[in-house]
């Protein structure tokens, strides 16, 4: 029978606490890093948008061919995914994440307005989906999956997603202009509002341009498979078409 070595119990407690503290601080550090990364991407995007705005302001003097911007939407989409991951891994009420989310929504609206103007001016075939989701909405998860998949398949497609209940005045304005009811998920495509879940097939039906892109892509594929030397030409044509 041995007596209890209390010092050892306290020493072990101290070490265990130190391990806990290290793990928590390391995790916090990485989480902050993640938020920083999102913030820097946002800054980059807001800069891009500003430059696009200047570009459109100069549109009168420029030919529509020079208006580029497809890369931007892809970046916005990737940013959205990172943001929703940060939202899940940190607390959803985290003020840091909330601020980022609001900024992101505003950037989306800006990009949306800009692209609308480019379309009006140049008659390009850019297709937008404005998507409203909410918390505690099971169908929204599936809708989100469908839209992510579509964005992967059609990089030219622009998807703007908004948290219906996010406290941002601009979102509220967007909602009231388009008379979008609080029945989620809701999709706004070409001034038509679609409620309930829309499958990939449904959306491809609603937006005929998607089919055109699909066919184009298949042709391209065939061209590459046939190893025809004119493949770059096909690409060139496509760019002009846009």
């Amino acid at each position: 029978m041995q007596t209890i070595d209390w010092k050892k119990y306290i020493f072990v407690l101290f070490i265990t606490a130190a391990i806990f503290f290290t793990a928590i601080s390391f995790s916090t550090y990485l989480s902050n890093k993640r938020v920083e990364e999102i913030r820097s991407v946002q800054e980059q995007i807001s800069l891009d948008i500003l430059s696009s705005e200047v570009q459109t302001a100069l549109l009168e003097q420029f030919s529509c061919k020079d208006v580029s911007g497809t890369a931007l939407s892809r970046e916005l989409g990737a940013l959205g995914e990172k943001l929703s991951f940060a939202e899940e891994s940190r607390n959803a009420d985290d003020p840091e994440v909330l601020t980022l989310k609001k900024t992101y929504s505003l950037l989306e609206i800006k990009d949306y307005l800009l692209m609308n103007r480019v379309r009006e001016k140049c008659g390009t075939q850019n297709v937008f989906i404005v998507y409203f989701y909410g918390k505690d909405c099971d169908e929204c998860r599936r809708q989100g999956l469908v839209l992510t998949k579509l964005r992967e398949d059609y990089p030219e497609l622009r998807v703007y997603s908004f948290d219906y209940n996010l406290d941002v005045a601009a979102i509220a304005t967007l909602v009231s202009i388009n008379k979008i009811e609080n029945t989620l998920p809701a999709l706004l495509i070409d001034e038509n509002v679609y409620y309930d879940f829309q499958s990939i097939e449904n959306i491809e039906e609603i937006i005929p341009q998607l089919k055109v892109w699909k066919e184009q892509k298949e042709k391209e594929k065939q061209a590459i498979e046939a190893n025809v030397e004119s493949a770059p030409e096909v690409n060139g044509q496509q760019e002009i078409a846009q």
Binding site: I19, A23, I24, F26, S31, R34, E37, K82
Partner: peptide
């Protein structure tokens, strides 16, 4: 790397 979970519980479990 962005999408790798980094919760304290993960580090503690690994440890």
């Amino acid at each position: 790397w962005f999408f790798v979970h980094t919760s304290p519980s993960l580090f503690l479990t690994v440890f």
